[in-house]
Simulated assay, not measured.
Amino acid sequence: MYIRQFDPWKSELCTCPPKYSLNPYTGCVHGCLYCYASSYIKNFFHLREKPKLIESLKREIKKIPKNSLISLCNTSDPYPPVEFNKKITRKCLEIFKDNDMKVLIITKSDIVLRDIDLLKEMPSCVTITITTFKHYKKLEPYAPAPIQRFKALEELGKKGIPIGIRLDPIIPMLNEEEIEAILKAAKDSGVKHVIASTFKPRWDSWQRISQAFPDIAGKIQKLYFKDGAKISNSWYLAKPLRKDLILKVKQTCAALSLTFSSCREGFPELNNSPSCDGSHLIPDKSFSQEQAAILF
Rank of each mutant, 00 (worst) to 15 (best):
M1H: 14
Y2Q: 11
D7F: 06
P8E: 04
E12I: 15
C14L: 11
P17Q: 09
Y20G: 07
N23T: 01
G27Q: 01
G27F: 04
G27N: 00
H30P: 06
C32I: 00
A37C: 06
A37E: 02
Y40F: 14
F44Y: 10
R48V: 10
E49Q: 13
K52F: 15
L53I: 04
S56A: 13
L57M: 02
L57V: 02
K58N: 03
K66T: 13
L69S: 02
N74R: 13
T75R: 12
S76M: 04
S76N: 02
D77I: 03
P78S: 13
E83C: 13
F84M: 13
I88L: 04
I106F: 14
T107N: 00
T107L: 00
M122F: 05
P123C: 08
I130V: 15
I130W: 06
T132H: 08
K138W: 03
A143V: 00
I147D: 13
E155Y: 12
P169R: 10
I170E: 05
L174T: 00
I179Q: 07
I179M: 06
E180H: 09
V191L: 08
K192Y: 02
W203A: 14
R208H: 04
F213I: 04
A217S: 13
K219V: 01
I220E: 07
D227E: 13
K230G: 03
I231D: 01
Y236V: 08
L241I: 12
K243G: 03
Q251Y: 12
T252N: 07
C253R: 10
A254T: 15
S262L: 02
E265Y: 01
G266I: 06
F267Y: 05
E269D: 07
L270K: 01
N271A: 12
D277N: 12
L281M: 07
P283V: 15
D284F: 08
D284Y: 09
S288W: 08
L295H: 11
F296L: 11
